[in-house]
């Protein structure tokens, strides 16, 4: 009996929403969607790309409409955090088992999807972060960004005691337990390092897996060099206050 239960559990098909926040990416978005649809996945997963059109002012919306891509259309520009959260809310409310965040600029190859999905399928983790710094393969980024990444690694480790090599990576998968939490609260600007604290203080298991990333095909990084100082300052404040809020006020005052 027990054996049977386990078997049906293991052979369950997971509905996966691939959430692609997208702001003025008319050049690359269609390529990415085609690539996601053409990639072969194991039969455990049903992969569905969902684009979040974050009030693009170029032809993005028309392209999505013409090619019948499922998308969520934000009428006000919310920035990366708000856009991604809309996708998380959508996935959480519409019966998806897993949501994956994937950048619209082509940095995150769909071929690597299965690597970040399988720990969720095997119940090894609640959140999986794809990191380019575990094996150092593929496109690596600039020195300044690496300094920032090491700084956040240190900050996360000293606060919650877990090591995430690349907490700035936006290529991550969340199961339903994690989706419930991010539907309630998700940081606005530069949410990635901050959400690591959010996950671990909510007792979610985080796992980091190595993925190979590409150089962006188009668009700009949300982190430009002259903004790095502001970014570090803002995220540090965000992390510290989120830590205080969750640690000392309990979950009810999360908002």
């Amino acid at each position: 009996m027990k054996q049977d239960g386990k078997e049906t559990e293991m052979s369950k098909v997971f509905k996966v929403a691939v959430i692609i926040p997208c702001h003025n990416e008319e050049d690359t978005i269609l390529n990415l969607i085609t690539e996601i649809k053409n990639t072969q996945y194991s039969h455990h997963f049903v992969i569905e790309p969902i684009v979040i059109n974050d009030a693009s002012i170029d032809q993005t919306k028309e392209i999505l409409l013409n090619h019948h891509v499922k998308f969520i259309d934000l009428s006000v520009n919310l920035g990366i955090g708000g856009a991604v959260q809309s996708g998380f809310k959508y996935a959480y409310r519409n019966g998806y088992d897993i949501a994956v965040q994937m950048d619209g600029d082509g940095q995150h190859p769909p071929a690597e999807l299965e690597k970040i999905l399988s720990p969720l399928y095997n119940h090894e983790a609640d959140v999986v972060i794809g990191s380019r710094y575990i094996t150092n393969e593929g496109f690596q980024s600039s020195g300044l960004r690496r300094f920032g990444i090491n700084y956040f690694k240190w900050l996360n480790k000293s606060l919650v005691g877990i090591t995430v090599n690349d907490s700035t990576s936006g290529y991550r998968a969340l199961n339903i337990k994690a989706l419930e939490i991010v539907s309630q609260y998700y940081p606005d600007e530069y949410p990635e390092p901050e959400s690591v604290i959010l996950f671990s203080l909510n007792h979610l298991k985080i796992k980091e897996v190595p993925v190979i990333m590409r150089e962006r095909l188009g668009g700009k990084s949300s982190i430009r060099t002259y903004k790095t100082i502001y970014y570090m300052f803002k995220v540090t404040l965000g992390i510290i206050f989120l830590y205080i809020r969750l640690k000392f006020n309990g979950k009810r005052h999360i908002i």
Binding site: I72, L74, L78, Y90
Partner: peptide
């Protein structure tokens, strides 16, 4: 700021629901 964000998200999700 938070209220506008929540409203925008809810509206976009409703729009999607309506379309589907």
């Amino acid at each position: 700021h938070k209220q506008i964000k929540d409203l925008t998200q809810e509206m976009s999700l409703l729009k999607e629901k309506l379309e589907s």
